[in-house]
Amino acid sequence: MKGLFKSKPRTPAELVRQTRELLIYADMKSDRESKREEKMAELGKLIRELKSILYGNGESEPVSEACSQLTQEFFKENTLRLLIICIPKLNLEARKDATQVVANLQRQQVHSRLIASDYLEANIDLMDRLISGYEDTDISLHYGAMLRECIRHQSIARYVLVSEHMKKFFDYIQLPNFDIAADAAATFKELLTRHKSTVAEFLSKNYDWFFAEYNSKLLESTNYITRRQAVKLLGDILLDRSNSAVMMQYVSSRDNLRILMNLLRESSKSIQLEAFHVFKLFAANQNKPPDIVSILVANRSKLLRFFGDFKIDKEDEQFEADKAQVVKEIAALEARDRP
């Protein structure tokens, strides 16, 4: 009997239009409570339907034609903006669905173009809103997930990198709430590793303030997890070929060397190991400035003793080779220092 009353299936474009209408409604404050509840439930259902078109459901794979129609209609008007604004008003399940819809839309191509990127470029202030989500516990995980999807687009990532927001990440990473801090750290890492050329350009133009903050707020943080994540990410950044100029600049600084040597002496094995991967760059540098050499020489015996005992749990040829190289470099300094 049920089937008799089933309405005709709506097209993806119709679904998007209805969603948009309800989002506009949700954004306004009015109406009786009971009616509102009904409409919000309907909105939740619609968002779930959008999700199952984009991801497929248990029985069927997504159909590319339907996805394409949905995407086009979605970005034709400001549905994305409305959806982002309305996230705090949705219930938990609808929020999760909405987050997945937004994530998926970033990857949908229409006529081999990522139209999401065009939309975001024209509505770049949405990024400001998403980033500010880290200051609102209630929505940070949803906004954070959307944000990471949006910065898959190079132009959008560039906007965030050069914006004032970048400075805020140094604090977001250390928020006391682990889930949120970890989410911010994931976004921060994505920003600094995904788009190689953009990152290299950003780092060389902003070297001074960026690494001053990085050292003092992250590498010298009192928070174990912050130091551990920061030294790992630093290694990833400096060891990336596209950042070689930045790396040379970094390993020529006496202050940086001091910080890394302190990290080497930490009692945490994980931090020690990550610190080693950065420290080795100082030692391997063939054009060490004199003050770097003098620090290494002054600490030579301690360093050699340290590396003599420095072991990791599992066998790792690359690590052993690196270590041997570092020891060789430091021992060779001795010869040069005392003719």
Binding site: L141, D183, A186, R228
Partner: peptide, 16 residues
């Protein structure tokens, strides 16, 4: 956390 060899990303994914 220091005993866990897993990278923190997976810890994050799961607690989230």
């Amino acid at each position: 956390l220091d005993q866990s060899k897993a990278d923190l990303d997976s810890v994050r994914r799961e607690t989230k």
